[in-house]
Design a protein around this nucleic acid. Structure first.
Length: 491
RNA sequence: CGGGAAGUAGCGCAGUCCGGUAGCGUACCUGGUUUGGGACCAGGUGGUCGCAGGUUCGAAUCCUGUCUUCCCGACCA
């Protein structure tokens, strides 16, 4: 990779970090690879979480909670799962500290060694399936449709705010079914839930697809995913849904009696999205002025900034603002009136732009005299003066329009950066010069996939669902292929 | 774990090559003028220069060691 590309990557990383930190979402913490999510960022996550939670419940799921600690032996039970996760786990080996007799402060008490080490969950399949064994005896107990909101820990070598932190917040759904068909249907249903959440709430267009064997979740028979494109052209896996077959049921001996009194292992799915989605939001919509947040999940949808000279004018403006505030609130709009005397209007404008607040209203005595108010939208930076009568209805519509326009803009950008490649030269050239997603033929073997990754750092992001069959030849090996798959460099 | 960069006031940085009273911007405090795109003037508070050794009359600066963070790679949601 050339120096120029490296420097561009650094600039982009810097831009991203600035947005996250100056936008008030999160900051680095004292703990390696972990971050502090600040109130503004957490409210954003809560809004996303609440919307998702409702969608889960609307599709028949309930929430529960399972332990943070997993006995080491549990993790050992599903072979592929061990392979995928064992290397990146935090391990609890002792349960007590004591004062160092040498006066060096606290030390681990060597006598307090656990007989069996506990793993801080990197994901909860094992502890949950160990529990499901006791919960499932009959087909009448199925399907079991459970979700948990939790934190997990994966000791990744390299971390990035929101995109890959050592500890992260997520939800993980774990379902059990009587038939293969039902489980596959569930995995596909939840993928669609994720896709519509991303598109409708995050204004983030995604491609629905399945992973190639080598990118599949450890222990899954099929991994479905949604892939989003960031503004640097790299791909981000925004959510996954796995059809686990009977793998975990076998590993944890979870059997049920069907209607014919035959004993069989149950069929499973798991699916999850994480705080990584916040990072996706930042990277997909942000600009040089800061965050740009979609109205449906923005912690603050509207900010009102008064412009005045002296207390008298401020009182006049404030009086008018009160009625606007009440109306907006009664429409369910999250609105703040920032009448802080310490910051001047220009400061506030810049500050709320950095934080990505979708709509800003500015009201001064000049406007009051003309019965007008200035409305500025964050996504296009467009400012417009509208009549004070009906401003709340105008804002309500504007929020909807911003939500839609943000999606349209991201989708146009994404679609412009999906390019077919028909030769190896073209493939490499596109990756280096244009970036984005590349659709190309692949011979279907893991070896070829690996070779392409080694040569270009691009991976198969997914085989899109509802893909059009098309005869062709593999971009690298020239062997026959029946469809194009989606390649990209990824986060 | 490799390669690169950096640790100096709450934050952002200069000073280090060439050793000699700890600096700038911003934030904060006080007073005043201001307020339609990150205001201005005046005064003020705040730092064992990451840590530990060494050289020296004297170290932020030179030497040795060490820790931490960020960026790039391997790993990965």
């Amino acid at each position: 990779m050339s120096k120029e590309v490296t420097s561009m990557e650094q600039d982009y990383s810097q831009w991203y970090n600035d947005l996250v930190i100056k936008g008030g979402l999160a900051d680095y913490s004292a703990v390696r690879g972990c971050m502090v999510i600040k109130p503004y960022g957490f409210t954003l996550w809560e809004n996303m979480r609440d919307a998702l939670d409702k969608m889960f419940k609307d599709t028949g799921h309930v929430n529960a909670y399972f332990p943070l600690f997993i006995p080491k032996s549990f993790l050992n039970k599903e072979a592929a799962h061990v392979e995928g996760f064992a290397k990146e786990c935090a391990v609890v080996t002792h349960y007590r500290l004591k004062n160092d007799p040498g006066g060096a402060g606290l030390m681990v008490d060597p006598e307090a060694k656990l007989e069996e080490e506990l793993i801080v969950r990197p994901t909860s399949e094992t502890i949950i399936w160990n529990t499901y064994r006791d919960w499932i005896q009959s087909y009448r107990d199925l399907p079991l449709l459970i979700n948990q909101w939790a934190n997990v820990v994966r000791w990744e070598m390299r971390t990035r705010l929101f995109l890959r932190t050592t500890e992260f917040l997520w939800q993980e759904g774990h379902t059990a079914h009587a038939t293969r068909e039902e489980a596959v249907e569930e995995a596909e249903r939840m993928l669609e839930v994720y896709a519509s959440f991303a598109e409708e709430f995050m204004a983030l267009p995604v491609i629905r697809g399945i992973k190639s064997a080598s990118e599949r979740f450890a222990g899954a028979e099929e991994t479905y995913c949604i892939e989003a494109m960031m503004q640097d052209g790299k791909a981000l896996q925004a959510g996954t849904s796995h059809f686990l077959g009977q793998n975990f049921a076998r590993a944890f001996d979870v059997k049920f009696s069907d209607k014919d009194n035959k004993l069989d292992y149950v069929w499973a799915t798991s699916w999850g999205v994480s705080t990584r989605l916040v990072g996706a939001l930042v990277m997909a919509h942000g600009d040089n002025e800061g965050l740009v947040l979609p109205p449906k999940i923005a912690p603050l949808q509207v900010v009102i900034i008064p412009i005045y000279k002296g207390d008298e004018q401020k009182a006049l403006v404030t009086e008018k603002v009160q009625s606007i505030l009440q109306e907006l609130k009664s429409l369910g709009i999250r609105v703040k009136y920032d009448d802080n005397d310490n910051a001047r209007p220009g400061w506030k404008f810049a500050e709320y732009e950095m934080k990505g607040v979708p709509v800003r209203l500015a009201l001064g005595v000049r406007d009051l005299e003309k019965n007008e108010i200035e409305v500025a939208r964050r996504d296009t930076k467009e400012k417009r003066v509208v009549s004070l009568e009906g401003v709340t209805a105008y804002v309500e519509n504007l929020l909807k329009d911003i939500q839609q326009q943000m999606f349209n803009k991201a989708k146009i950008y994404r679609d412009e950066h999906i390019t077919p490649a028909n030769s190896w030269e073209e493939f490499e050239k596109l990756l280096d010069e244009k970036g984005g997603f590349i659709t190309a033929h692949w011979d279907g073997t893991p070896e070829t996939e690996e070779a392409i990754k080694d040569k270009t750092k691009a991976t198969i992001r997914c085989i899109p669902l509802r893909n059009n069959p098309e005869q062709g030849t593999c971009i690298l090996t020239g062997k026959p292929s029946s469809q194009r798959v989606l390649f990209a460099r990824a986060y």
